[in-house]
Amino acid sequence: MELLGVIVGISLKALIFIIGMFLGAAYLTWIERKFAGHIQQRPGPLHVGYHGLLQPIADALKVLTKEDLVPDGVDKFLFYLASLMAFVPAIMILAVVPFGEPFNIFGLEIKPYITDLNIALILALAFGSISIYGVIFAGWASNSKYPMIGGLRKAAVLIGYEVALGFAMVGPIMQAGSFSLKEIVEAQSSYWFIIPNILGFVVILFAILAETGRTPFDVQEAEAELVSGYNTEYTAMKFGLFPLAEWYIATFVLSAIAVILFFGGWQPFPLLGWLPIPGIVWFFIKVFALFMFFLWVHWTLPRYRVDQITELAWKVMLPLALANIFIVALWVIIVG
C-alpha cells in the first residue's frame, strides 16, 4: 500500500512537471518572439489573442496538423529515433532539479522536486550527453549533404563543450562537498558560490550557449550556409521537437542548473531575505533572468566559424575551467 502510494505520487508529480514544462516551453517561445520583436522595434505576434498570447497554441496546432513527409532514402529507424533522442533527455534532466524547499498544504508535505539523488549532478550531465546522439542520427539518417555537414559540425562542437561544462562544475561541488543539487543549494545560505567561481561561471555561460545552439555558436543551423542544418529534411512535429527541445527546454533546464550551482537556487537575494516571497518564486525569477540574458546575447552577436568554436573550446574554455578549480581549491583551504 505504501509502495502504491509512492508510485502514484511520483507519477502524478512527473506528469505535472512534464505538462508544466511543455506549457512553459510554449510560452517561452512567446516571450522570445516578443523580446526579439521589440529589440528590432517591431511588435512580434499581435493579433492572435491579446498581444499574441494565443500564438503558441496556434503554432502547436499548426505543427501537429502539417503533412509529415518522410523522404524515400532515409534510414527510417534512425530518422524517427533522432527527434525523440534530442527531446527526451532534455526533459529527463527535470527529474533531478529541485525547485524549492518542502512545504505543507492541508497537512500533506509536498516536495517540489521529483527525486533527491546524491549523484544528481552527474545524472544531469549524463542526460545532456545523450542528446548529442539525436543530432548525429538526424544528420546521418537524412541521407543528404547539407544535414550531414550540419550534424557533424554540431557533434564536434558539443563534444568540446561537454568537457568544459563538466570541468566548470567541479568548483561548486568542491565547495559544497556533495553531488546532490539540494545540498549544494543549502550550502549557499551564507554567500552564493558565484564569488570564487567567476571564471567557472563565464565558462558555463559559453558552454550553455554552445550546447543549446544559440549565437554566437549556432553553427549547425546557420541559415545562410546550410539552409537549415541537420533538420532540413524534417517536417511537422518531428521538426517541431528539435527547436523546442534545444532552444527552449534545454536552455531553461540548463539555466536552472546554473542558477542552482552559482546563484543560490531558491535562496533569496542577500539583503532582501525579509520579503515574504517563497523560495520557488525566487528560483523562477533568477532562472528567467538568466534565460532573458541568453536571448539578449542571441539576438545581438554574430556567429563564429566551426573551427574557431572548437578552438575556443579546447584552447580557452578548458584551461579557464582548470584554473577555476585551482582557485576554488585555494579558497576552500584559506576561507574554509
Binding site: I39, Q40, Q41, R42, T215, D218, A224, W299, L301, P302
Partner: peptide, 16 residues
C-alpha cells in the same frame, strides 16, 4: 551581410 554572418538585428535597423 550582417544577417548572413549571424547578427540578426542589424538587418532590421538598416531597413529602418
Amino acid at each position: 551581410y550582417a544577417l548572413d554572418i549571424g547578427a540578426l538585428t542589424i538587418f532590421l535597423y538598416t531597413f529602418r
